[in-house]
Amino acid sequence: MFVIKCPYCGERDQTEFSCHGEAHIARPENPDNLTDAEWGEYLFIRSNKKGIHYERWTHDHGCRRWFNVMRDTISDEILATYKMGEEKPKT
């Protein structure tokens, strides 16, 4: 069980949050020009890193805002939380 530091509310129990997968995947700027392979890559292909993973969480039962988490998927240790739009922390 995680104690997650929401960038807006501070430390809260994991049960208040939900995870929404890999972060920093930008929607393509030119959707009309994408090939099927490029669409598939954007929609479905994930890095699924063993190690440092950047991911999106929401504080569902709190401020209901989205933010990013840097977490080690081997130990489940949370290394940083930061607001949407901020640069991802270096490892």
């Binding site: 069980m1 995680f2 994991q14 049960t15 939900s18 995870c19 929404h20 997968g21 890999e22 699924n48 890193k49 063993k50 993973h53 991911e55 977490r71 998927t73 081997i74 130990s75 489940d76």
Partner: peptide, 14 residues
């Protein structure tokens, strides 16, 4: 299953 990625072979307590 849990909603977050992990290779820890441990599920969350809740």
């Amino acid at each position: 299953s849990d909603s977050y990625n992990s290779y820890s072979q441990r599920g969350s307590f809740d």
